[in-house]
Nucleic acid binder design. Structure first.
Lengths: 198, 198
DNA sequence: AGAAATGGTTTCGACTCGCTACTATACAAG
DNA sequence: CTTGTATAGTAGCGAGTCGAAACCATTTCT
């Protein structure tokens, strides 16, 4: 019997712990909790559909109530800005403020980690990435977890021309950089559409 | 330029978040926080040198003050037992109680995850494991993080005979199963011993 | 228009977590 | 044997997390 899967999980857990500890360290100057740092990082990577409290909450795995609190704090600290959605006046949209961008730029939470992979060949990294990606998507399929992916492998993604893209679900044109951001509405290509209209 | 390292980190972070969320879910029946579950899991895997509040705190990345609190709670709930060390009466040793063992057995925090790797070939998993292991050890080397490994690759490990082992640092005989547990005193084979005696 | 759903905020209570004492034991030097 | 000094752990404080439930405001369904 092979114990590798267990070892893999242990490693991921351990690395995750250390990343969390790193986030704690990075945030301690500014009196920020790990979750706050994660939230800032998320906002820097979220596309236009996904910059809401709700999406953030799902991504980092907290309830919307807690998310609301954390966002309040980040707002007080001037690291994020909130603005109303034009179409739906219930939804609040979020973006990093100048200070928020600066904070991420100064601290580069991911730099130390990127550095830690320097001895590993690009090829091995790509292999690891694909294995982890598959693990993630299997787990999500099992648990109906919210997907959170980017356009590349999304069912709703449409390529209009050489460099014109479109989200079939929302109907918007998308810029090339935007297609690489994190999206909440992501649906893995190939999964059944199910019930649309009656 | 290759973005794979960043993607790898993102995946690890995401998986780590989900594991944490899973720990939260598992613990919610018993009113346990994720950290509590992690602590129980750690104790189930720690060897005889590593079942102390101190080691636990370092492993999960909290301070000893916080660890003390959490252990108090786990003790009140009857999930762990504390006992004195014979040699050094300052140190408190920890072990899972019957109820604690049962809790882990009932909930199997890792089962869902093990399941999530079912579609990945053992070979790819092993490759991913080795890449992550290397990332971890590079990161630890950079940051002087506490090591936490098992005997297999530890500097102090000695093989007396076919199935008799010994820890050179502590001088104890070790059983075969014990050599696979997590140890706090772990030192990667090959790193300089430095200053021992004068 | 009324009912149900949805996105966010608020409040509450138990707990985390870093920090700063503080206690008790161990160990080293005089 | 006493007097440090280091080490393992605990206790208390204050800000914040977090889930749960109640609550608004707005949208959507009928």
């Amino acid at each position: 019997m092979d114990k590798s899967p267990l070892v893999l999980l242990e490693l991921i857990e351990r690395l995750g712990n250390l990343m969390r500890a790193e986030a704690r360290r990075v945030g301690s100057d500014e009196q920020l909790q790990p979750v706050h740092v994660e939230a800032l990082v998320y906002l820097s990577k979220a596309n236009r559909y996904s910059n809401t409290p709700q999406a953030l909450a799902e991504y980092v795995g907290i309830t919307k109530g807690t998310a609301s609190q954390s966002l309040l704090l980040l707002d007080r600290r001037g690291l994020i800005e909130r603005y109303e959605d034009d179409l739906d006046r219930r939804v609040v949209r979020l973006r990093l403020s100048q200070a928020g961008e600066q904070f991420l730029y100064d601290n580069q939470p991911q730099l130390a980690w990127q550095h830690a992979t320097r001895n590993i060949s690009p090829n091995r990294i790509r292999n690891a990435v694909s294995a982890l990606r598959e693990t993630l998507s299997t787990f999500q399929a099992d648990n109906e977890g919210s997907p959170f992916g980017s356009c590349a492998s999304c069912q709703h993604f449409e390529r209009l021309s050489a460099r014109a893209y479109r989200c079939g679900l929302m109907g918007d044109r998308l810029s090339a950089p935007e297609t690489r951001k994190i999206c909440w509405l992501y649906e893995l290509k190939g999964s059944a559409a199910g019930d649309d209209e009656e």
